[in-house]
Design a protein around this nucleic acid. Structure first.
Lengths: 135, 135
DNA sequence: TTGCGTGCAAAGGTTTTGCATGGCA
DNA sequence: TGCCATGCAAAACCTTTGCACGCAA
């Protein structure tokens, strides 16, 4: 384990993450929010911290055709996001962490019939969540 | 229907698409290939043509965390890619068109347990294909 | 003091846009 | 001729990188 310092910028980023848990956001979203709040954190600092968190598995990152730049999402309770499948609502972008048991059969079939070894950490199911279906 | 002219550049792009069906590629891939072949097509022309083809539904586009820029894939025989799940090899990028039957149970579970209505056309399973597992 | 983190500036890559020109039908 | 398409250059974005300095432990 590496040493990690607590700094003003890092704290600000964590604040943002906590206030935006279970929502996707981009580096730009953070910059804009900070800018609005008069908080000053350099963009390179933001990118470096986000990258670090991703490597540690505390943050998910993905790209979306309809969003400019990389999308991130904070996993509140430090779920090991490299080990389970996610579902993403195509409308609001909310991410769900799925139970791997759902895919036990699919995993087997994929390997048997297509020769594909599914990567749980990278797979994203697209769909529409309850809320967005109503509206 | 709009009028569409046949031009040298457009033909070159179509040639590329046909030679690379069922493989993902980026705008850069096209530029590099053309460059190698001594073919000269401006990048803005490439982007404009790709965008046009996407709008017409003749090309799929998506973003991949591990690939720089937008990925495209030409669907040779215009498969109805909006209606089935795809699997993508994280290594070589090859796309597989999956049988929906594999996901019948998952579909039900997702709705029951998470309230998510899966979108078959947008879902992409990540994994490693047979070939890439060997190497 | 040590070494991790930050800010700044610059650069790299992708994609878009405006405008004049070229070329298909 | 009338439009669509292209090339070129510039600009807009996002993201990365090098370097010196700041600061937590």
């Amino acid at each position: 384990m590496k040493n990690e310092y607590k700094t003003k910028s890092r704290n600000a980023i964590f604040e943002y993450l906590k206030e935006n848990r279970d929502r996707r956001f981009t580096a730009r979203d953070i910059m804009d929010t900070f800018s609005d709040q008069g908080e000053e954190v350099d963009k390179s600092t933001i990118y470096r911290n986000l990258e670090k968190l991703c490597k540690e598995g505390r943050l998910i990152s993905y790209k979306d055709k309809d969003v400019n730049g990389t999308c991130y999402q904070y996993s509140e309770d430090n779920k090991e996001c490299n080990c389970h499948i996610h579902a993403k609502c195509s409308v609001c972008g909310k991410i769900y962490h799925l139970d791997n048991k759902l895919f036990e059969n699919v995993e087997k079939d994929l390997l048997d019939k297509y020769g594909i070894d599914i990567d749980y950490g990278k797979t994203v199911i697209a769909g529409k969540c309850n809320n967005c279906r109503k509206s």
